[in-house]
Design a protein around this nucleic acid. Structure first.
Lengths: 211, 211
DNA sequence: GTCTATACGCTGATAGAC
DNA sequence: GTCTATCAGCGTATAGAC
């Protein structure tokens, strides 16, 4: 996957150099604490060129956002092409996200850790973007096919990927010391089978075991 | 609970007026898009006074942060005084958070939706603050007392409260249309009993039913 | 303690040379 | 297409009157 990477592309095209530098800075300091001059310095591309290519700082952020969402969407396509149950597809996604959290933390950080609406005001919510709709659609199918036991796909999605995103954030913040891959089995098991022991609604549990 | 509230305190002390206005603005636009002049206008307190009281915009944000964390900490104290299992305590917290999300969305938004490290650089991570440690401690006890079935309290906490925080965010963003209280039963059930139907590790499920 | 007016620096943006 | 020099505006912070 041709992710933006400062170390890989050496005589990179100029717009790639800009985006790569911007990603690094945005993740490190946050959008608002990065100036055009900072991007200019790190990318070694003149301010004029930055304006020519992207029309300003917001334009750089938007291009970066679109580019990374596109990469993420391609990943979702691959996952959707798998011959697998919806839960297996979800788990594959979780595994890949954990791997990227270690290998490309800047990308994961920008997509999942940033408050995009603060610097992309016109942008629709990230959860309405294509790859996130694909995620939701997996959950919907899972519910329809009685694989996932929930009444509402949005809520089910929030529970599943809320957990995953939180784990990723804690890992990025250094609260979790070990790579998340290491906890993959426990996490997916917990998500799909629950953490609880004391069960109030006994009847419902039986539904879970049935079929 | 004496939360900051513009409508309640009418001839408020000056510092309360500043904090209340700041909270409103920070939540609406985000910290970086609010200027001292904006706070001055809304609070109707002069810039000089704002500097005297809080030493600047960051100072206002820090005071707000401390104040709200303190309120949250008092809530955790109350919950910890309940004669209840750890799961019941967690559920009580979840219920209260859902209620506040409807009644005091600004507070919830500032505490859970903001990226504090972007404007409070020296501040420790929010998950290391007192009330969050109290949350973690509930989980730890739950695991020790074999109430919660997990090996690692941080991961268990991430799964439980990651879900909850995500739901709150989706509610604040308007993606979830109904008040979360309405989904409380389904959510807590899903969190504690899992979403999955196909269970790979049959043995572990039996452990869940036991005792 | 509270306020107003002002200074200064930084940032985004442009114009024009190469 | 790429760059440099420069400008205008905003936002923080202060000094000093009341």
């Amino acid at each position: 996957m041709p992710y933006l990477d400062r170390t890989v592309c050496s005589p990179e095209p100029i717009d790639c150099r800009i985006l790569t530098a911007a990603l690094e800075l945005f993740v490190e300091r946050g959008f608002h604490k990065v100036s055009i001059h900072d991007i200019q310095k790190l990318s070694d591309v003149s301010i004029g060129s930055i304006y020519k290519h992207f029309g300003g700082k917001e334009g750089v952020a938007k291009a970066l956002y679109d580019h990374l969402l596109n990469e993420f969407d391609e990943l979702m396509d691959k996952i959707n092409q798998l011959e697998a149950s919806q839960i297996e597809k979800s788990n594959e996604l979780i595994k890949r996200l954990f791997t990227y959290t270690e290998s490309r933390r800047d990308i994961i950080s920008f997509v999942f850790h940033a408050k995009h609406n603060e610097f992309l005001p016109d942008e629709s919510l990230i959860c309405d973007e294509k790859p996130f709709l694909a995620m939701r659609s997996i959950i919907e199918k899972g519910i329809k096919e009685k694989e996932i036991n929930a009444s509402n796909p949005i809520i089910a999605g929030a529970i599943i990927f809320g957990s995953v995103i939180r784990l990723i954030q804690l890992r990025l913040d250094g609260v979790i010391k070990e790579p998340l891959e290491q906890h993959y089995d426990e996490i997916t098991f917990s998500i799909w089978n629950g953490l609880g022991k004391k069960i109030k609604n006994e009847p419902k549990l039986k539904v879970i075991n049935q079929s």
